[in-house]
Write a protein that binds this DNA or RNA. Sequence first.
DNA 1: TCCCCATATTGACACCGTCCATTTAATAGT
DNA 2: ACTATTAAATGGACGGTGTCAATATGGGGA
Lengths: 202, 202
Amino acid sequence: MSKKQSFHHGDLKRVLFDVALTLLDRDGVDGVTIRAVAREAGVSHGAPVNHYRDRKALLTALAQRQFETILCSIEEGLSDAAGGSRVWIDVFGKAMLDFGFNFPNRYKLLWRGDLIDLQDAELSTVMDQIYDQLCDEIERAMPQSEFDRDTVAIAFWSMVHGYLDMRLSGMFVSLNDKVSGKPRDGALLDLFKMLVPQTLDI
Amino acid sequence: MSKKQSFHHGDLKRVLFDVALTLLDRDGVDGVTIRAVAREAGVSHGAPVNHYRDRKALLTALAQRQFETILCSIEEGLSDAAGGSRVWIDVFGKAMLDFGFNFPNRYKLLWRGDLIDLQDAELSTVMDQIYDQLCDEIERAMPQSEFDRDTVAIAFWSMVHGYLDMRLSGMFVSLNDKVSGKPRDGALLDLFKMLVPQTLDI
DNA sequence: TCCCCATATTGACACCGTCCATTTAATAGT
DNA sequence: ACTATTAAATGGACGGTGTCAATATGGGGA
């Protein structure tokens, strides 16, 4: 049996993870500090090191889990709407945009290469899975085109991520006032969806 | 005349700015700390507050200057290559990509909405100038299209920024190995350039 | 039952940003 | 020319952070 549970605190690792996620949502990544997490979990500031080597390891675990969630959301969307050739744009786009707008702090963490460990095996695995899935769908949708899958995938992901990053960092708000509420969430996807098929002969 | 120069240190404000920029390039934004800048400038850690209210003010000044540089680069590019209807894609794209790859730490600072003051008047002014210039060129290139200027501008800027952000944060490197050196710098621009004119009837 | 060892505690160190009282010295006013 | 004003620089303090090391604790395997 051996419930793999420590002595002092049930399993502290899970508690630390959950607390960290709560703090991330509430205070942003700056609020996810080793000491704050420990405080909120009711343990001393030195306790977490037994479960997460350092802050970067904790944040990496958080990020990895979020990528997993996104991947699930994508797979779910793909299986639901199996069909048309341009579905991948909606599925991937919706998965990313929904996640980003619903959990801005979690989304922003995903791209803080300075705070998470990009060499982490589990993290890069799930990122690869998302990217490969995207490429597969593109390949399936347009077998032969003048641009290879990678270029289309990167262009698409770049646009979606760039849009989210600019929106979530508050840049658009401070740009021209005209832009503030301008881009209907799906506008960019509509644009990309109309652009790609016509030129890349799907 | 009153050369507007302080007593102890020539003009410390300029020195602080220059030192901060050097540290930014060398150590990233995390290295641009009030105390480090003061140390490098040879003054006490309390001195900078007389010229920059706090760290955010210093970083905002840095960011504002970089946007100015980019704007100049764009205007220069536009006046040089006055002509074709798709020039704006190359000019804006090249300006952003060149700046981003040449000064990755400076570029990344521009989008750290948590570290700079987005309400700053001078900062938002120059950001508006860049955005307006982009919209003007789009308007000039395609007077009537089904998508308004703002949508095209945001789509384009989103793609360029997203690409840069993902490259500079090291994400692509850790993604699929196939992607590592894959996207030739101009590939995305070529893609966008080929996409837009065909659909949006320039 | 007893001992081992993973886990938790506590304290230390070196940073950081920010505020404060104090000292400095350049300039303005007489 | 001398003084008063005032902006600018100093040094110390406070509370916060990450990380490390020494110590205490107690559950499970022998």
